[in-house]
Amino acid sequence: MKELTKHYLPFIKILILPYLFFMFILFYPIAYFVDTPGGITEVESIIAIDYNEEKEIKGTISSTYIVSINRPTFFQFMLSSFSDYNYANVIRGSYANYTNQEISQISYLDKETSVNAAIIVAYQNAKDDNPEIVIDYYEKVMVFGKATYLSFYDDIEFGDEFLYLIGDNDAIVDDYTQIGPNTQNSSSYEFFFKNSEGETYSRILTKDSETNLFGITLKLYYLVDKDTTYPKYTEQNSNIGGPSGGLLQTLAIYNMLVEEDITKGLKIAGTGTINYDGSVGYIGGVEQKIITAYLNKVDVFFIPFLSETYTYDNYLEALNACEKHGIDPTGWLVPVASFQDALDYLAEVE
């Protein structure tokens, strides 16, 4: 070792500063996000249903993912600028205050609840033709957002269940929509939560003096009761988060439940969240998803189309992306507003 060091010392002296500079740009994070094209994932590889096992499914139904890098290093940021396929911008909104770990937690919470919504919608639709199918679900109000001024910020986790709070006149308020009207007389109230390990805990949350809010966002979810639902399903662990696979998950699960094969041998992909009433919701990163679909040569790509006049409508954004990258959208880019729209489209395919 000594001999090598002595022999290469002049080189080491020259290269030490560029080396340290390179290490700096490899590790220094910047307050941006970068979206890049990702890939498609067959829903069957994530969700399996113990039903219709002899049925032959000729095509595939896949959700589309993109790679979102929050607070990339300077090097990643520079790399992203070399391709038109990538999109980089400053982190805005509530995400600017979250750590990468918190963004990841929200993303997986979104994914988990999205799969539950997909199962509920798919089972309910399949149940119309097959009374053997049973779907039961329950309500759960969970922590979905936290402001920086939230008291006990670190104690309350994303996904913790809101149970109730002790409101004005010692009233127990378990309806999250009634928190505002029942917390008028004081600035601090005791909230009760249940964490992911099933432990109940309480924290006294104080309203922020400027906003007059507690700084916590609660959201109502419907979760599947796995004990009573028939047929049983199993969900594999996935490395991909977010709710944007909802529509395609619903289609794939529905296809596993019904007798006919709705894929008709096609490579089907798409994007869009799924709501409990079967309607489809907007997603982000449309441009990168269109490129991903194009690179993966899909036959059909479903995309939310909810308004002809809204500039940021996903379908209109997708058409702009196609024009920007010289992609012909004819024949494969299919606008949908609901799960039923997607079914109707596939029913008409010869």
Partner: peptide, 27 residues
């Protein structure tokens, strides 16, 4: 040991850089 030390010094930023290239151009 000496060769391993200097190879590691060179490999470290190189492999981190490649990992970051992979993350941006995953496709």
């Amino acid at each position: 040991l000496g060769a391993f030390f200097y190879t590691t010094i060179i490999a470290l930023p190189l492999l981190i850089a490649i990992a970051q290239i992979v993350s941006v151009y995953l496709y």
